[in-house]
């Protein structure tokens, strides 16, 4: 048995596995993140929250393991939920991948996790990028519908004369901002509670109580609402 292959000799040369975490740990952390993404949506609806919170696992894996592992979590999330809600949700994997790459590179390479304001801005960037990717998919595959309350807003924007892509973008950015900022800060709280062996190499700020974050989220969303309403009215007239 002396020369049996060792499963998880840390591959230091691999560009993905820079954490020196055993491969088996990564291989098990990824399904957990994927399942948590899917269950996160379930918790959000159990708590009756108006946001999805289905990218927390993506954010955690992107920050803790690396952006490309996060992207894999994103792809597997949508493949997994394709088995539950049908293959039409597959294109949204792209949204998850974009979110993972931004969270991962943002915290690990660009130092956007060092202070609370920086991390807040990172989450806003993620939200905007996700909407930019999601809006065309929503229009092409679902004709503008998402099946949640924001569709009423899309309809209102259409009624005042905004075009379809603009309306979907406008209503999606509002939900996306609230969703991604809250998801980012929940991820931050979870990362802080993780075993130190997983998080020692990451340069990330300590978690902050969610109350202040929620106030800031409300501020950002109201600000965005004013902008998109203004844009819709200008587009309509």
């Amino acid at each position: 048995m002396t020369n049996a292959p060792v499963a998880s000799a840390p591959k230091k040369s691999s560009r993905f596995n820079r954490n020196n975490l055993p491969t088996t740990l990564i291989v098990t952390l990824i399904p957990v993140s994927v399942a948590l993404n899917i269950v996160g949506g379930y918790i959000a609806s159990a708590l009756r929250l108006p946001v999805y919170l289905d990218m927390i696992g993506t954010a955690i894996s992107a920050i803790v393991l690396g952006p490309w592992w996060g992207a894999l979590v994103g792809i597997l999330t949508n493949t997994g939920s394709a088995l539950i809600t049908g293959p039409v949700s597959l294109p949204f994997a792209l949204v998850n991948v974009v979110g993972a790459l931004l969270w991962g590179y943002g915290v690990r390479s660009w130092g956007l996790g060092r202070t609370i304001p920086r991390f807040f801005i990172l989450n806003i960037i993620v939200a905007i990028a996700c909407t930019v990717v999601a809006a065309p998919i929503i229009v092409l595959v679902f004709g503008g519908a998402t099946g949640n309350g924001a569709d009423a807003l899309t309809g209102t924007f259409l009624a005042v004369g905004q075009n379809l892509v603009g309306s979907v973008f406008s209503s999606n950015i509002l939900t996306s901002l609230a969703d991604k900022i809250i998801a980012g800060f929940v991820a931050l709280a979870i990362i802080e509670a993780l075993p130190k062996s997983l998080t020692q190499n990451i340069d990330i700020v300590k978690a902050t109580p969610l109350k202040g974050v929620l106030l800031a989220v409300a501020g950002v969303v109201v600000g965005a609402l004013i902008v998109v309403v203004f844009l819709a009215i200008t587009a309509g007239s």
């Binding site: 952390l29 948590l36 996160g40 918790i43 929250l49 927390i56 809250i182 979870i190 509670a193 969610l210």
Partner: peptide
């Protein structure tokens, strides 16, 4: 329900799972 319940519910579930 509501946002106050977010951290007390998400954190134990996630951290427990990952541990």
């Amino acid at each position: 329900n509501g946002f106050q319940a977010v951290l007390p519910s998400f954190v134990p579930v996630f951290v427990g799972a990952i541990e």
